[in-house]
Write a protein that binds this DNA or RNA. Sequence first.
DNA 1: ATTGCCGATAGTTATTATCTATAACTGATA
DNA 2: TATCAGTTATAGATAATAACTATCGGCAAT
Lengths: 306, 306
Amino acid sequence: MPIMLKFSLMDVHQLRVFASVFKNKSFSKASEELHLTQPTISNHIKSLEDEFECKLFDRLGRTIIPTKEADVLYSHSMEIIEKADALKEAVGEVKKDLTGKLTVGASTIPGVYLLPRILKGFQNKYPSISVQICISDSIGIIKSISRHELLLGVVGAKLGNELINYFPLIEDELIAVSPPSFMKNNRMELKDFIELPMVLREEGSGTRRETEKFLETKRVTLENIKIAGIFGSTDAVKQAVKAGLGVTILSRLAVADELEHKILEEIKLTDVQMKRKLYVVTHKKRTLPHLYDTFLKHLLEESKNL
Amino acid sequence: MPIMLKFSLMDVHQLRVFASVFKNKSFSKASEELHLTQPTISNHIKSLEDEFECKLFDRLGRTIIPTKEADVLYSHSMEIIEKADALKEAVGEVKKDLTGKLTVGASTIPGVYLLPRILKGFQNKYPSISVQICISDSIGIIKSISRHELLLGVVGAKLGNELINYFPLIEDELIAVSPPSFMKNNRMELKDFIELPMVLREEGSGTRRETEKFLETKRVTLENIKIAGIFGSTDAVKQAVKAGLGVTILSRLAVADELEHKILEEIKLTDVQMKRKLYVVTHKKRTLPHLYDTFLKHLLEESKNL
DNA sequence: ATTGCCGATAGTTATTATCTATAACTGATA
DNA sequence: TATCAGTTATAGATAATAACTATCGGCAAT
């Protein structure tokens, strides 16, 4: 049989009972205040007296007088009761808390062309937050989430992992773009498009890989293509296209502004659809802090209007 | 049926369980630390999660990760746990506490001739106390104790009150005293003694009443006596006797020093015994603070050596 | 003496804390 | 791939506890 040295169970409720008796100088008044019956109060006081091995109240007939021990217990009890209430309050606050730092992982396209706008709007709504976007490739983001280095990410690929939640966000599309007025007719088939001189990202970049992947589905490889230039960033590619170096294939998101202002022009490929979905990703087993949860909802909501 | 809005039961034990899980980052390690079983821990955490309506730990397989709410709960829990331990400690301290103020009520004789010596010894033993003697007559002391104005008194009469404890202390005795060498033979009968000129306290004094009471039992009244002088204090009476004004009847305690130094001399009355008991008195329904309790024991112990 | 107020006690019931045994899941290894 | 070791969850049983109702007994004021 284990030797149970039972150390202060002392529940806060019991201290509340004691404090009420002390303040009201009466067991029965305390019972009214706490909506309990008088024998219940008696029992609690008795159990405290047993625990501390001392009388707490001298029961004279009509009145009770607290002992010296009760005086000490009272002041300490009040502190504990206040702290207990503060605790309850504090936990409640955290659940509503929308301050602090929000770190979002993202692959290049959403990280550069989507999140900044959305995060700006979110920060305007909740000014007391600071925001950070960590850009990596989709695999890296998902790994970080698996390892609990990140809580939330936006990626352009669904890399099957049992423990990851994928929330569909918006559709992105790889489109062919040219300088404005590059062609008379901006509708063509892929086989005609690949005759044009092309500007590309360097090998290994996400966009380059995506592009290759799509072309492969149409049995096209880059070897058959006139490469007019290779650049290290999406922006550099855009600049090259604007300068008339050639055409390229880019995410619609990345060229949305340029298309709107007619700085670049879309070439509609009539026989290919190069769509992909963007996903918000989280870890299935992690509880998101309220700030993250709110941002997630904001993100899904905002993306409807795009 | 009463609408029970149950407000934080939250016992400290549960917070200890939580804190242990948080620190150990493990339910099972916590169960070892607290000598409970793992399902018990699980239940406690679940009940806290229900109470706060939020997850506290994300259970991944081999590990758990505390949520933001848990972080907040932890710091607050630690405060409460520390306060709870401090409380336990503090109450324990009070029970051993021997500091503070010790107020003792006493009637004239014990208050003037007995308590000062004993209190001095007590204070030497426990230097960090302050001592006060409140002198009144026995009735006043006992009333004060009944009214809870005093916790402890020393009196020379047992005035039957159901709610008062009387602890016999020592025997006092009214004795007849004369100046030294006043008589050849210091043994006599009462009838001879009352022929001598007598010094008395004023009417209404305790000693005067005691004296009259004793004489009455022998069918003697003061009218038959030669009164050499009436004085307002025991000391004045003693001075008068020393000066040879006459004899008197006084408590043996009051003249112990003078008898020892042969400044006064006892006249042994062969046919009367004027003894009375001194009692320590307390209220039956009051719990004495440890300081008082210790003094009471000291008092009863010391009085054996007198 | 009687009445009214207050706390204590007895006995009951529902809730709760704890246990044992076992399931379900994860991560690592053979 | 299957299995093992380590971890939490679940189910079911039991003992402890907190709450209630009813009643007793002491004290003080009428």
